[in-house]
Amino acid sequence: MEMGASLGREAGLQRQRDMIATVRGAASDGVRFVVLPESALGSWTPTVARLWTGASGDTDATVIVGAVMVDPKGYDNVLVAIDRRRGRILYRERMPVPGSMWQPWRSWFGENGGARADFFANPVVSIGAGRAAPLICYEQLIVWPVLQSMLHDPDFIIAVGNGWWTDGTSIVPIQRAVTTAWAKLFAKSLVTAFNT
């Protein structure tokens, strides 16, 4: 998916409808699961949840899509699973990028903000009849999240990213190469979705 810098920043109704149409088009071809990149939904709110579940209509497809959940203390970078019955948080990122996202020192000075790191949470998630090792962006490049997930013997790896800001660099190709290497090393299937 190529949506550039607008992905996650432009969350208007028309953008949501366009993504829903893309998902419904894939579902009409018999696809049961559609994966969209990190940050694709923008903020995960009750309104966005109702829009997506209501628009799912009679399809049997489940969408796995990146979003953020914001509260007064900071935010979580998440993967959401949406089908015609409900939308739910599937995964909370274990290791956001230190500095630009994860800023634990803010609390030392009485400040709020930054992404939360859920280091030991949710190393595998259920998707359909399978179990997946979810990896959001930076997690694909470091050892801990992958090894923690592999200890739970998932059926496959699902890797998402939002790399529009890396245009002109080799960061996204490196992420793809690394996730492919992880999948081969542990003999797992790999599903990816990157915005470039």
Rank of each mutant, 00 (worst) to 15 (best):
M101Y: 09
G74F: 01
V70I: 15
D76T: 07
R15Q: 07
D60E: 15
A55V: 02
S126H: 13
Q103D: 08
W105C: 00
D71Y: 11
I20W: 00
G87S: 14
G54H: 06
D118C: 08
E38Q: 11
S126N: 14
L51A: 05
V97H: 05
P46R: 07
W102C: 05
V80K: 04
N77R: 14
A55E: 12
A117H: 07
F109Q: 08
V48P: 06
P37D: 11
V34H: 01
A21M: 07
G74K: 10
S126V: 05
A40C: 08
G66V: 07
V124Y: 12
F120D: 15
V125I: 11
D76L: 06
A40H: 00
E10F: 08
V63E: 04
W105M: 08
E38S: 08
R92A: 11
V35T: 12
L36R: 03
A55H: 03
I20D: 01
S39A: 09
S100K: 12
A129Q: 11
P123E: 12
M101N: 09
R84L: 04
V97E: 12
P98M: 09
W105P: 00
A115M: 05
R15H: 03
A81C: 12
R88H: 11
R15F: 03
T47F: 05
L13S: 03
S107K: 15
A40L: 02
G99L: 08
A129T: 11
G54S: 13
V97I: 14
D76Y: 02
D71T: 12
R32N: 03
V78F: 03
S126W: 01
Y91F: 14
V70P: 00
F33W: 11
D58L: 12
M19P: 00
V63N: 02
A61I: 12
V35M: 07
T47W: 09
L41G: 05
A55Y: 01
P104F: 09
R88E: 15
V23M: 10
W102P: 00
V68G: 02
V97Q: 09
V31R: 14
M69S: 13
V31F: 08
T47K: 13
L90E: 11
L79N: 05
